[in-house]
Design a protein around this nucleic acid. Structure first.
Lengths: 279, 279
DNA sequence: CACTGTGAACACTTTCACAGCT
DNA sequence: AGCTGTGAAAGTGTTCACAGTG
């Protein structure tokens, strides 16, 4: 148990590390695939490979759930599927609402994996009156005016926000006031929410920017100010140059005034990073 | 990602921690907003609040980039925008291709923030011949047959996969063979790629499952230890919330046979967690 | 004085390596 | 013999608190 920070009740340690929780869905997916192929048992090694992690990590993760394996044999697939599902709360049904039915919202609504795993789309909500009543994914879009009613009547506690950035904060406040306590936010904004409400964020441009950072490292940078590509991110086993990365030279640093000008030029036509979808 | 091997050169390295890299886009977004309001300087405290992190973390993050602030004053907004953009590689143009133009692919193609920040959609690619030529986001969809040609001609090094799960691995292999070295994967599969290729994953059902886990904690389970929640990001506001969360009790554990049966019952109609979009 | 920049403490995560069970 | 489960070590990330500076 290591250093218990404050006093954790010595009961069955219910404290599953966040990093482990984030991997459970991965294991579950791999296990489900095995289950469909009627594979009865897996070793930590096999399952880890399927989930894309290493086996020590997997075993450690499972050890937080309990001792569900059999030494010398491995894990019973069906049993583990059940245990992980239960741990994740997927043995109950979670009604969710999707707010903002643009391209992205529609894509989410059509997402099959939703229904198959304990989640049920209870309603699609959009602010555009022209959308109201239109069927999306076999379900009529409802107007934002009814948001509170919909949340309450369906006992919704998880909301998905797929609105433009400008609307997201307000939508989140209405969702929360109506009883939602978990939000999955696709709008490119930081939501500020009261304690006790969980927010997870999915943000395309952040992901791309992180990729660009690493991509830049791979490309050139052999010499000069920035130093060698220290973080031996990986060996260029397969020649990174193949793709002829863009060569545009980075403008050299300059005095603050000049730099500021350069930065200002970048200001796009749109305001802040705009919303993922237009309506 | 990179198996960090043995000794790290003790040179005061350019090694920016991954966690910091992941936050730079957040800072950049907040700074861009300030820049548009012509705010000349920010303190770490203010900027941190806008980005949803705490100020110590922000200062530490910036310290990896260099000393870009002024003691007693704060940071010059324009200057920081430029420095972070440069660090992230956004001063150059990154052509990207999107493969799989279903609902999600179309949503991504229409995503405005793409273009405004160093990323340019070079092509939309889909396997459906019926899609070929159709305009999406003002751009004709091209057929998968031409994938390699498109990648090479445009010098694309970043690919976005928005295909069904079943196609993702193969698509990634073709992208990589053609020169792509960074992939943003929206398909619910673990991609296996050679060393030197970065993959980032965006997965709706994983995010929902993580939310469900925490949601479940909030609902029942009042007695046990774990009380705190995930991410205490912003300042505590009103504690309100108080939603009526679903109360359905989790089925009690049972003997292995019974549990397995229960688990089996859950097997969804669809195969594995299906793709986000139908292509 | 206000605010940055940073060493040092602390907390969390991953990895190692092996004891222990079947 | 084979594989799980887990302490302990190593590595990463976060927070504290204050020295240093404009």
């Amino acid at each position: 148990m290591a250093t218990g920070r404050t006093h954790r009740p010595a009961t069955r340690s219910r404290g599953i590390p966040e990093a482990t929780v984030a991997r459970l869905p991965l294991y579950l997916r791999a296990l489900t695939a095995l289950s469909e192929r009627s594979v009865p048992t897996v070793s930590s090694e096999e399952l880890a490979a399927a989930a894309g992690v290493n086996s020590a990590k997997l075993r450690k993760d499972f050890s937080y759930l309990g001792s569900y394996g059999t030494r010398g044999v491995g894990y019973d697939v069906e049993y583990l599927v059940y245990q992980i599902s239960r741990e994740l709360g997927l043995t109950q049904d979670w009604p969710v609402v999707i707010v903002g039915i643009g391209n992205l919202g529609a894509a989410l609504a059509n997402y099959g994996g939703f229904a198959s795993r304990g989640f049920r789309v209870a309603a699609l909500i959009d602010a555009d009156p022209a959308m109201a009543g239109k069927p999306v994914a076999g379900m009529p879009v409802q107007h934002t005016d009814d948001l509170e009613k919909i949340i309450e009547e369906n006992g919704v506690s998880i909301g998905v926000i797929a609105t433009p950035a400008g609307a997201a904060q307000q939508v989140s406040e209405r969702l929360i006031a109506a009883g939602v306590t978990s939000i999955l936010n696709f709008a490119p904004t930081v939501l500020s929410v009261p304690e006790g409400v969980d927010v997870r964020k999915v943000d395309l441009s952040i992901e791309l920017q992180i990729l660009a950072f690493h991509e830049q490292r791979k490309a050139g940078e052999g010499s000069g100010g920035a130093g060698a590509d220290v973080d031996a991110d990986t060996e260029p086993g397969a020649d990174a140059a193949a793709g002829a990365a863009p060569v545009a030279a980075v403008e050299p640093p300059a005095g603050r005034a000049a730099a500021a000008a350069a930065a200002a030029r970048k200001g796009g036509p749109e305001g802040d990073v705009p919303a993922v979808m237009p309506a």
